[in-house]
Amino acid sequence: MSRRVVVLSAGLSTPSSTRLLADQIADAVRSAIGGRGESVAVETIELRELAVEMAQTLVSGNRPTPGVVAAQESIAGADGLVAVTPVFSASYSGLFKTFVDLLDPKALVGMPVLVAATAGTARHSLMLDHAMRPLFGYLRAVVAPTGVFAATEDFGAVDGAGEDALSARIHRAAEELAALVVRTPSGVEGFAPTSGDERGRGQGRARAHELGVVTDFASLLRGHDGTG
């Protein structure tokens, strides 16, 4: 079964170091999932291309715009997400947060997510833990244990043993994400949720711009028909 992974890149320049990191992670995720015998399609969404549409959506009553809707639908059909943002003022960038703000609060329930960030110096590295993880925790996503932080100096740096430390982190994070994306159900039929969603996740996740399950009126009226 083929998997789909969406990469969100919130870099502003072209080319950007954020996109550079996003591409390296995308490659690593592709080979990590491939290494587990599964095929994978990776789609990268450049948030800067949606900047104007997102602003329009915000100021016109949450009106969906075509590019934003397409991106949301892409995420709704994904098995995993890679989120890469530059660090701006001690947090993720406003562009990145705007995109997240426009997602349905249930759009990422149970979604495996790899968090990553770029910055000028390594002093911002804890942003992944004090900003990105709580954000995805709120959205009830499943965040891989390893986050990938790349300061400018990390591109091309090697440690004392001659190892490429950034590349090692990327591959460890990619392996963790791949394990979450292709994991098999562990529940015993009849005792824990197994079927209906073969990976035991994604239940209750809202699909972009679909009307979703309709509640039967008898259920809506129950307790409200005035009989006490």
Binding site: S60, P64, G212, V214, F217, L220
Partner: peptide, 22 residues
């Protein structure tokens, strides 16, 4: 969708404001 369901249940009319969305 609950409101569309409500209108359908009673056989009342359903109105969509049709201004802000596609």
């Amino acid at each position: 969708t609950e409101i569309a369901e409500q209108a359908a249940f009673y056989g009342d009319g359903f109105f969509h404001n049709n201004i802000f969305w596609d």
